[in-house]
Design a binder for these strands. Structure first.
Length: 408
RNA sequence: GCGUCGGUGGUAGAGUGGUCAAUUACAACAGACUGUAAAUCUGUCGCCUUCGGGCUACGUAGGUUCGAAUCCUACCCGACGCA
């Protein structure tokens, strides 16, 4: 894996780069499609490719439980297994520490809306009795499988071992994604744990061969001091002079704090290595991240929103099941050249009315068509942002796009 | 014509004297979703409302009762059986 910066965005941390992996080149900034269980939900690789996706991200926890990382290894690695010839990444399972732990059974996401004042209470409320499928232990996390209830203890070493079996081009250190509801004391403890786990991940990775592909993950919640401390420690973590090959920026933010948190971190991380803002991907977040030095994003929103009936347009998101679309025979977005909206193979393209009909009829194709459009929309947006930096018109493009998108 | 069973909110279908504006499901309408426990979840779903409540409703019309979707009578409609 090799990363080159081609151009920097003036007066900011932003940059355009090229990331070379064993399975192909990723032009950055880039949006990574999430394919948790070695599939981008409802899409086949041709559709993923046609949406413009360059790289797909699978998940350690999910693939370890099913079908098992050894099966994926024996298949020839995640890319071969899922018939995706391009670059791949795997997340370490660190997010499941949150989603199956503190967030389990709760209406909580990693991006906190500042209006949720109940989650901003200063003291950590003790909800350790609350049911959860992930329990944090001394040197790892005990997961109770959401599939069959079996118990699995994932340590940093185990996560790295699994990821080596999965065989992606880029892998992540095992971390603890904390809940945005945690207080400073807990965030501090968790951060120390994540830092210890980072070093152990690196040690194990080197033990298993140590090709250049392991990203360390910066945490620290919403706290400036913790974010900066974490960036410094993760950047400096090394074993016999071997450092992380790139960085993930993980954990929870208040939406309003996201830009400062990313900036704090990227001002400290070494410039020459790629940075991946984990799990973030609303259009306004992409501009923010890129302007602040992020090279890679992944997010479930394009596919999840798509499956659930919401699609992106340059004038904002729309819900396809709304009554007004039942007889709207225009495409989801006029001028969009995704394979849902644009004429292909002699057809005229799918209309809003048709997609709405498929959703109402609970047809599988509904989620596919909407996911194709959404993935194309987001991936293409990042490409356009990249191009705007190359052409020295990033800020103009940002204003033009967000004016339409947020006010539409 | 006789007999039996049945007619409940957009639909299916609970309820068989008070706690029923009526369980539930579906449909409808609106919303949520940020390293995927998610093709999922939430809310509304008779009319009006100053959100306290008010009004009209369980085929139709009467009746019994303090009180009826629930009991009685007649009628209308449907299914089945016998003629």
């Amino acid at each position: 894996m090799q990363f080159k910066i081609e151009k920097k965005l003036k007066d900011s941390l932003g940059r355009v780069g090229v990331l070379e992996t064993p399975h192909g080149v990723i032009l950055t900034p880039a949006f990574v499609a999430v394919g948790t269980k070695a599939t981008v939900k409802s899409l086949n690789p041709d559709q993923v490719k046609e949406a413009g996706v360059q790289v797909v991200l699978g998940n350690t926890y999910h693939l370890y439980l099913q079908p098992g990382d050894e099966v994926v290894r024996d298949a020839g690695g995640i890319g071969r297994f899922m018939n995706w010839p391009g670059p791949t990444m795997t997340d370490s399972g660190g997010f499941q520490v949150f989603s199956l732990g503190a967030a389990y059974g709760k209406d909580m996401s990693k991006v906190l809306k500042i209006t949720d004042s109940s989650l901003l209470i200063p003291e950590r409320f003790d909800d350790s009795d609350a049911p959860r499928l992930a329990k944090i232990g001394a040197d790892g996390v005990s997961f109770k499988s959401h599939l069959d209830g079996s118990i699995h203890y994932i340590t940093p070493e185990k996560s790295i071992e699994i990821q080596h079996n999965l065989g992606a081009d880029i892998i992540f250190a095992f971390d603890e994604c904390t809940s945005p509801a945690e207080d400073l004391k807990y965030q501090t403890e968790a951060l120390e744990r994540t830092h210890r786990w980072a070093e152990r991940s690196l040690i194990e990775h080197l033990k298993l061969g140590g090709e250049q592909k392991l990203f360390g993950i910066v945490q620290g919640g919403r706290e400036e001091s913790l974010r900066k401390q974490s960036a410094k420690i993760i950047a400096e973590t090394n074993v016999n002079g071997k450092y992380f090959d790139g960085f993930g920026i993980g954990g929870s933010f208040a939406k309003e704090d996201m830009s400062t948190a990313v900036k704090w971190v990227n001002e400290i991380l070494p410039e020459g290595k790629p940075r991946h803002l984990l799990g973030i991907g609303e259009p306004e977040d992409l501009f923010m991240g890129i302007e602040n030095g992020v090279d890679l994003f992944d997010c479930v929103l394009p596919t999840r929103l798509g499956r659930n009936g919401t699609v992106y347009t340059k004038n904002g998101k729309i819900i396809m099941t709304n009554k007004k679309f039942r007889d709207d025979f225009t495409p989801i977005e006029s001028g969009c050249d995704c394979s849902t909206c644009s004429p292909r193979h002699g057809g005229a393209g799918y209309s809003r009315a048709y997609v709405a009909h498929l959703f109402h009829g609970k047809e599988m194709l509904a989620g596919t068509l909407a996911s194709v459009h959404n993935l194309h929309f987001i991936v293409n947006l990042v490409k356009q942002i990249r191009q705007s930096i190359l052409e020295d018109r990033f800020f103009e493009f940002k204003k033009e796009f967000l004016d339409g998108y947020l006010k539409g």
